[in-house]
Design a protein around this nucleic acid. Structure first.
Lengths: 194, 194
DNA sequence: ATGTTATATGAACAAACGTTCAGAACCAAG
DNA sequence: CTTGGTTCTGAACGTTTGTTCATATAACAT
């Protein structure tokens, strides 16, 4: 049943974010209209503007939330030996990204639809995340746990490799998530020469 | 000087493809208008329809050309030992993708803007490319040149890792292309246990 | 019950969209 | 100089876009 005019709800805000997340991921930011999002929520387009100042902010909020959650969920940095920290990072990255395919997709694909200011903010958050891995790689290099020529390159290589899991892995497939984690961990470990 | 009405040219077609490639890569297919492409070429929007039946075909043609060139440029399969073939693939992938950043970007990001039929065609070409790497990995596994648990996973991992180079590498930076190729080859070789 | 506040509608806006087409402008061939 | 075939312009089409706003409704506090 369509929502009647004037009804309170308190759940419209989250519903808008969910609908926007799914639609942006499936069709792309530019290809999704405000009316499409509204229709998914069961509301008229004008009502969206009680929750977001404009379409751009809706995109930015989704991306910022994702990056903030990602950084917040990251395991503690100096809890263990480099090799354990690297393994932790690999398993965490795969699992966390697997749980939110839409947000991950948007965070990678819709950067060009952000205003320059918003783009800079998101890029900063992404840089913080990459730095966490880079610091681990440097720590292991210093301690002799492994041997990488260039920590910066290794960081990019590992993150690209891990994020790629989302393009093919489905939990209904022939492999379980932990099998995938095992194999990627083995490849990463070998790649850094550990 | 703006092109005057009625002038022949024979170069408008290629110019349209170039303009579309650059604009699609920079702003995304859905965010680029036919008028924008036309203006880049120096022509009115209607003139584009002498060269493409519609916007969708323009995108598809660009993607198909890219994938076909990619497959055509791939080094011969059974020319050498597995280890040499793998190294050849790694260096080729990095170099080829580095030369066409826009086409690569579009081929990865605009799949969802293809019609189902066009999507299937492009996915088939991509599958052929991935198979070439997978066959190499299987060959090396069989010959004992290296040791990978799952050739399919390793294929995805290697391609994701290599394609990631395009997101950060710039030839004006501190590293040369061949240094990057060297380091990625070392990581790939280690990752497969070779 | 009454008044206030939050939340929705639904119509409206100008601008931009992809695409079509009649006619103008130009080139090459005879 | 004429004819025929391309290539382009410029206007038009029906739709859709993001966003605004007066108005209506429902819930909550008193």
């Amino acid at each position: 049943m369509a929502r009647t005019t004037g009804s309170h709800s308190g759940i419209t805000g989250p519903k808008i974010r969910t609908a926007a997340l799914e639609l942006f991921a499936k069709q792309g930011f530019a290809a999704v209209s405000m009316r499409q999002i509204a229709s998914e929520v069961g509301v008229q387009a004008g009502a969206l503007y009680n929750y977001t100042p404009d379409k751009q902010s809706l995109l930015f909020d989704l991306m910022q939330s994702h990056m903030t959650e990602l950084l917040g969920a990251l395991p503690d940095e100096d809890a263990a030996q480099p090799l354990e920290m690297l393994e932790q990072f690999v398993r965490f990255h795969i699992a966390f990204h697997h749980e939110r395919p839409e947000a991950v997709f948007i965070a990678y694909m819709e950067l060009r639809n952000l205003t320059p200011e918003n783009f800079a903010l998101i890029e900063d958050l992404r840089g913080q995340y990459e730095n966490r891995l880079q610091n681990i790689l440097i720590a292991g290099q210093t301690s002799g746990a492994w041997n990488v020529k260039d920590a910066k390159i290794a960081t990019f290589a590992v993150i690209a490799m891990l994020t790629g899991v989302n393009t093919w892995f489905r939990s209904e497939g022939r492999l379980s998530l932990s099998e995938v984690q095992d194999q990627y961990w083995q490849m990463v470990r070998s790649a850094v020469g550990g």
